[in-house]
Structure formats: C-alpha cells, structure tokens
C-alpha cells in the first residue's frame, strides 16, 4: 500500500452508464468461476458493468478475485478453470467465442495494461515492433499505417518518435508503461483493462501514468476498468467503484458515495487502513484476520469472521446486494448496512 493522497479528480466525467444506445463496454453477469482442487468458487456471482466511455475501479486485497475478473474479460484463464455466467464486451459474449473471434476481441475490442511493464514487454525486440506487431500480424493495418499510428500514440502518451528504435532495457519503467498504454490503444479498443498499472512504478510516475490514463480515456472515448488495491487511486480516477471480497462484490456505487458513506464493513475497514496525508496521525488500523482460503466452503457472509458488526445472522445467511435508501446505484451485500451509515452530507 503506498501513500498516494486521496482526492477527487477535478475533471468532469460522463454520467454513469455512459451514452445511450451503445452496448456497455463491459457487462459481466453472475460470473462464477472454479479452479481445480478448490472448495469454494474463486468468483462467486460477480456482476459488473463498465459503460461506454466510463471509468470504473475494481478494488480489493490480494486474492479477492479482482485480477481474475479482469483477466476473464480477455479470457486469460488458468488451465482447468470452469466458468458460469456471461461476460459481454461491446455486446459479444467472451466465454463462448471461438479462436478467431477471441483474437479479434484482443486486437480490436479490449486491451489490457499490465502491472509490470518490464516483464510484459519482450526485452529482445524493439519497442516499435512491440507497438505494431499485433495489428501487423493480424493484418489490420499495413506496416506503414501501423508505424504511423504508433507514432501518433507515442506522442499522445508523451514519448518521442525515436523510442520505436530503442530496446525495452533502454527505457525507464514509467516510459515503458507509457509504451504499454500506447500499445493497448493501437487497435482503438472500446474497453481498456488496467491491472494495477502503477504498482511497479514509483510514486511520482504513478501520478503521471494515472493522469495520462484519465486523459486518454476521455480523448479516445474508451471504457476503463481500473483494477487496484489502492483506494486513493480508485477515488482519484473512477466514476464508479466495485469493492471485491472473497470472489464477491461486497459494495458498489458512485465513487464519491462509496468512499464518503461506505455501506459495507469491509469497505469501511479498507478506508480506515489507508494512510493519507490528511488523516490524523497515529497508528494505521489493520484488518484483523485473513481472507477465507479456497479450501473451505464458507457459510454466510465471507467477511463475518473478521467483522466487528457480525451477528448470528451473518454466519448463517449469505447477504444479498441491497441498494441504499434514496440512492439505488449504491449497493452493498451486508445485513447491517444501515448501522454503518457515515455522517450524511460529508461528501
């Protein structure tokens, strides 16, 4: 966890849900996923949408299933995985695609920005080759057109035109992540997936990359699913937020609302354990206990063993997602949401 300050973004954003009459960039319905040799599903009924041009953050700690969720969108699944539910990207179901459709999805419709750009880019090939290889090899553009587009995108991410001749080892981590972002935009995708895109970078570079992602998302009109464990970043960049715990969506809603008035004890605990410059000095509050492991099938609310508000009900009955009063977009899967209401008007 780093010390990025929590602050609302100052650029206006499109309304949640995006433009009318366009299919959502991403629409996940009741996604359940099982890995071999596990007792409980790693993803258990995940519902998540990213409207066209919308920015959505997916927050959770390690092992909560957030990375798996984002990888499912490109069907990058571990061997032996079984899935139920649907994952629609720009209207097409990813889970039933054949090899050709899948390649089309990965080159033209959705692209992912990975956590560590040093590991993600082949160190033995030039940057120019990396940028253009997907559109060239899939015959989407001629080599000349691909080169021209790569040049434009490099400029858009703030890099110079001599970068294509370089090897990855000659660029800094921040520059490489810009290259990664430019590469993701090559096929003009409807949806960008960013899986902890700033975790491997230092703090000042993080801020630059996040600002850049925000700009580009607006400029190219792509939907963005931003996967992070960093609540400050999530608050800074996103229109809406999903908080994940043990393979389920614990809470979701407009970013401002979720962070100001969390309705799930897990979200509240996460917020309390986030260091911030404006927070009162003192010890950080850690969340006691461990996330449930995959070998046991939990009953009731998966967070109950770690929850200060847990009652008998929580250990026997699994809570369903319920909207907040007067704010239907803000839902939480907790029996005791109402007892958590933050001070109203604090947003």
């Amino acid at each position: 966890m780093n010390t990025t300050e929590q602050h609302p973004a100052d650029t206006p954003r499109p309304a949640p849900g995006g433009r009318p009459n366009t299919p959502a960039a991403l629409d996940i319905r009741n996604l359940r996923m099982r890995l071999p040799h596990t007792a409980r599903p790693v993803l258990d009924g995940v519902d998540l949408t990213v409207g066209a041009g919308e920015t959505v953050a997916l927050v959770g700690e390690s092992g909560s299933g957030k990375t798996l969720t984002s990888r499912t969108v490109l069907r990058l699944l571990p061997a032996g995985t079984t899935t139920e539910g649907t994952v629609h990207v720009a209207g097409d179901d990813v889970l039933t695609m054949n090899a050709r459709q899948l390649r089309h999805l990965r080159t033209r419709t959705a692209a992912m920005i990975f956590q560590d750009p040093r590991a993600a880019i082949n160190p033995l090939r030039r940057i120019g080759d990396f940028l253009t290889e997907s559109v060239r090899l899939n015959k989407i553009m001629t080599p000349a057109a691909a080169q021209a587009r790569a040049g434009e995108l490099l400029e858009a991410v703030g890099l110079t035109t001599e970068v294509p001749r370089r090897y990855p080892g000659q660029l800094s981590g921040g520059m490489l992540q810009r290259v990664m972002i430019a590469a993701a935009l090559m096929g003009d995708p409807t949806l960008l997936l960013a899986d902890e895109p700033t975790t491997a970078l230092d703090v000042t570079t993080q801020a630059e990359v996040v600002a850049l992602l925000g700009d580009l998302r607006a400029r190219f009109g792509t939907g963005l699913l931003f996967v992070t464990h960093d609540l400050g970043l999530a608050a800074a960049i996103s229109d809406r937020v999903y908080v994940m715990y043990a393979g389920r969506i614990a809470e979701t809603g407009p970013a401002a609302s979720v962070f100001a008035r969390p309705r799930h004890p897990y979200t509240k605990a996460l917020l309390d354990s986030t260091p911030g410059l404006d927070a009162p000095p003192g010890r950080l509050v850690a969340i006691d206990g461990q996330p449930p492991d995959l070998r046991r099938e939990p009953t009731g609310c998966p967070f109950a063993p770690r929850c200060a508000h847990a009652t008998e009900l929580c250990t026997t009955e699994t809570p369903r997602s319920m909207p907040a009063r007067g704010e239907p977009a803000h839902t939480a899967a907790c029996h005791h949401s109402d007892r958590l209401e933050g001070t109203p008007g604090d947003a």
């Binding site: 990965r106 080159t107 290889e133």
Partner: peptide, 17 residues
C-alpha cells in the same frame, strides 16, 4: 511461462507467431 508471452497472447498475436 514468462509474463511477456502471456501478454503477447493477450494482445491477440496468433500462437505460431
């Protein structure tokens, strides 16, 4: 098993390439 190969696949590069 390296990350950059997984990334190449995620970018829709045909397997033989």
């Amino acid at each position: 098993t390296s990350e950059h190969v997984a990334v190449a696949r995620s970018r829709g590069i045909p397997e033989r390439h």
